[in-house]
Nucleic acid binder design. Sequence first.
DNA 1: ACATCATGTCGTATATTTGCGACATACGAC
DNA 2: GTCGTATGTCGCAAATATACGACATGATGT
Lengths: 116, 116
Amino acid sequence: MTYAKTAAFTEEQQYLSRVAKALAHPARVAIIQFLASKQTCISGDIAAELPLSRTTVSQHLQELKALDLIRGEIDGLTVCYCLNTELLHKVHQQFTAFFIEATSGAVCGPDDACAC
Amino acid sequence: MTYAKTAAFTEEQQYLSRVAKALAHPARVAIIQFLASKQTCISGDIAAELPLSRTTVSQHLQELKALDLIRGEIDGLTVCYCLNTELLHKVHQQFTAFFIEATSGAVCGPDDACAC
DNA sequence: ACATCATGTCGTATATTTGCGACATACGAC
DNA sequence: GTCGTATGTCGCAAATATACGACATGATGT
């Protein structure tokens, strides 16, 4: 991303944007929703469900795994992916805090009406 | 992003990922927080607060404006940016729904323990 | 050991993002 | 009108992301 001056931003801002980037692709959103829809963890069936090649899905999985949003357990021949619900809960709280901070001000009206 | 088969994903997944991409950069998170911190809307002071050139900040503002997350009112010589709190509230609800869906399953334990 | 199946990794082509300088535009003061 | 200020737009270079074929790895069955 050419984050020239990354150090100039808050840790909170950087983490929030990293997680947001993880969700910044419909395939990754779909992967998380798919894992959530199955009560039991699923392996490479994920690739079969998405309109992408195994390679691409694998890369998306690695990105989600890099943030520890999902976990992968090797079960013999297949790999068992599942959501890290604890971390997802924390991330949810952080996003909520951000949105509450952003919506509490209530500066703009529905149409326009800037309070300047 | 080379969204080869974008049509293959849900509208919900696409919108969620678009908003996530808007938050996928610390500068844009910082911009939203900055606008939220000021009770009154601020113009190009945003550029002065960030370690980026006016040009770059302007581009980030355009990206946020493209999603209608922020609004810009021209006030003579300066432009008055403010948050679209209504939309932000809706987006917050959508994110919350997504995270609740993702965390309700509770598949993985804290350490590992896949239920496969 | 060997063949087979499920995954992951590497290399690569294309598309997008990021950042900024240079220019264009628009308003207000004179 | 002219000048100075505040923004936005264009164009370019470098960094990332995206997608996938080809190959490597690792476990299972015979």
